[in-house]
Design a binder for these strands. Structure first.
Lengths: 213, 213
DNA sequence: TGATAATTTGACCGGTTGGTAAACATTACA
DNA sequence: TGTAATGTTTACCAACCGGTCAAATTATCA
């Protein structure tokens, strides 16, 4: 038989899982570095160590590869926000959210850049996710923050812009890594900048959101 | 004579200035929306209302167009930071820097996205600018901030990460505009989000940097 | 083992891309 | 006005792009 594309089979073979994994890993590498339009199937094939038609055996089109990648990464990416807990101590919650987002910027910069590329270029492939699941999740957490503010546990502030501020400051260290390194000077080898950033940001947000008389 | 490309002539004719202007305007439109690799000369030509070979008469290559654009925009882009004044009132200086950066995000989002695209994809074309002029300027302003902190005028903090935080939070409204709109819901027509952001960010940074006993 | 299905590859296709060559049109200026 | 320099266009090219196809190879399992 010729055409029963991998996706159509009910049971996924060992080979299918392995190869799709390898392809998506390579796709992440390439898409995150060049964006969708700037990436080519050949590049991904080379990184994956497979032939181009072989990739297209597992994913019919470049778009399909991109979509599969987005779907797989998006959930993980939103996990830190999901853990935001209404019952917790507000300051501790915000502090740990910042910390987790910074850790993700450090440990999964490619995932961050994948979304950054996508959103930056108008989010042509993830508009629905933004207006649907993402908005819903943010709305929910914004209410939590609002409640904290009303209860006097943190300063009154626009919860949406607070979330934007945390997103932007933390993801900055993944998305604009080259710039950060250039400005700091690359003398320092390790991940020191992440610890410095954590210290600074935790302080900024905690003090900035403190209730003051 | 056939080849004395526009660039080589000593005097720039009226036509040259007009056309180069139109081309760079179109290039800004296209490059900022799709990044370097994702943009095509044809797209730029169409936006500029000229033929492709005509563009290539004024800029020999796609790279040359991109470089000319970057060179032109970079200076303007760094102006707000340059205005940062050591003699001024620290809180007022920081507040007005945030305000100016937000205004630029609102009024010149394409310029912001141009750089974001470039840096995000590893800054292959502006590495020198980052490590040279940009770093130098930031170093200078970081010293100013450091001095303020030592003088007890603002809380002690890492000046570099403070600058990163201001950059990221403000540019976020240009670079991630689609996401911001999606999350806020596009009911609100105007630029209200910029005013809300200004209120939030000024408060965050001012309170966050206040000296506290 | 053998047959059947799953996987992989090389050759290829039409469309797009950055860029060129040369003819043609327009402008500047003596 | 005439002519040389400047500006514009049409036709074109080689390389690259996303994707197809049929043949070849490998894995699965009765």
């Amino acid at each position: 038989m010729v055409l029963p594309r991998a996706a159509k089979t009910q049971r996924r073979t060992r080979i299918q899982e392995e190869k799709e994994e390898r392809i998506l890993e390579a796709a992440l590498e390439v898409f995150s570095a060049s964006g969708f339009r700037g990436s080519t199937i050949d590049q991904i094939a080379e990184v994956a160590g497979m032939s181009k038609p072989n990739l297209l055996y597992y994913f019919r089109t470049k778009e399909a590869m991109h979509r599969a990648l987005i779907d797989r990464v998006l959930d993980t990416w939103l996990d830190p926000l999901r853990e935001f807990n209404a019952e917790g101590n507000p300051v501790a919650e915000i502090r740990s959210y910042i910390r987790r987002k910074l850790e993700m910027a450090r440990d999964f910069p490619r995932e961050s850049r994948l979304f950054a590329n996508e959103v930056l270029q108008g989010a042509p492939h993830i508009e629905d996710e933004l207006k649907g699941p993402l908005k819903q999740l943010v709305d929910e957490k914004a209410e939590v923050i609002q409640a904290w503010a009303k209860a006097g546990k943190i300063a009154k502030c626009d919860p949406y812009h607070l979330i934007f501020a945390i997103w932007s400051t933390t993801q900055h260290y993944a998305d604009f890594d080259v710039q950060v390194r250039a400005v700091l000077g690359q003398e320092q080898a390790g991940d020191g900048r992440f610890e410095d950033a954590a210290r600074f940001l935790e302080r900024l947000f905690v003090d900035g959101l403190q209730v003051r008389e």
